[in-house]
Every structure is written in C-alpha cells, then in structure tokens.
Amino acid sequence: MEPFSEGLFIVLFYNESTFQYSPAKRMYTCKFKGGQGYEQLGILFDNKNWGSKKRQTGTCAYVLMQNTQQTYDVTFCWKERVYKDSDIQLRCGSMRFEFNVDVRDFVEGN
C-alpha cells in the first residue's frame, strides 16, 4: 500500500511485542504468529473474522495461520521509499504485508 503514513503504522503496531525498527534499513516490522496472532489481529482490526472472505460462489478464502503440521505468520512492513526525478526527491512510505493462503476445500466447524 503506497503511500502509507509512518505515523499510522507506528500507532497501529507500536504496542505489539514483535514490533521492531531497523534504523539502518529505515524499516519497521511487526509479526503475528499462529492462532494467537490471528486473534490479536482481529482485535486490532475490530473484526474477529478478518482473515476469511466468502464469495458469491459459496467458496471461502482463508489466511492460513495454523494447521495440524505447523504455524504460519503474517508480517507487516513499513519502509520509506525515495523517488528521484532530475533535481526533485520525493519521500514516501509504503506498507506491505505477507501471509499464506491455503487452496483446498475447507469444512467449517460447528
């Protein structure tokens, strides 16, 4: 997502235990892992079902955070980007996030 405010990224994630800043890279990161991370993101987004999307076809896509074999994480990163054009420099922040999805049939529990 670009542009994305550095201040907004900090406000969203500063209180999280995995919040980190790298001065050398001028980059912030914050990770959420497994079922507990899924729940914490639900609190931050004020939506306990933030990681699923039902389609009109009846299928549902899920952000994969945990299965019987392993746990996965969602990582949010903010980094400053510098665009140069002749003598003009434009600084702008961008946020990216990485997550896993599973593509197969799911059976919803009761």
Rank of each mutant, 00 (worst) to 15 (best):
E2R: 15
E6S: 04
E6N: 06
G7I: 06
L8N: 09
V11M: 00
L12K: 11
F13C: 08
N15D: 11
E16F: 02
T18W: 01
F19H: 09
S22I: 05
S22H: 10
A24H: 05
K25R: 13
M27T: 10
Y28D: 09
T29W: 04
C30I: 07
K31Q: 14
F32G: 09
K33Y: 11
K33T: 12
G34A: 12
G35V: 00
Q36C: 06
Q36P: 01
Q36G: 01
G37M: 09
Y38H: 10
E39V: 10
E39M: 11
E39A: 14
Q40S: 06
L41M: 15
D46Y: 06
K48Y: 03
N49C: 05
W50T: 04
K53P: 00
K53H: 14
K54P: 02
Q56A: 09
T57Q: 00
T57F: 00
T57K: 05
G58P: 09
T59A: 10
C60A: 04
M65E: 03
M65I: 03
Q69N: 07
T71I: 07
T71W: 01
T71R: 03
Y72F: 15
Y72P: 06
Y72D: 06
T75Q: 14
T75A: 06
T75I: 13
C77V: 10
W78D: 02
W78L: 07
K79F: 00
E80F: 00
V82K: 15
Y83F: 12
Y83K: 12
I88M: 11
Q89K: 13
Q89A: 04
G93M: 01
S94F: 02
R96I: 12
F97M: 15
F97D: 02
N100L: 06
V101M: 15
D102L: 10
D102Y: 03
F106I: 04
F106N: 05
F106Q: 12
G109W: 09
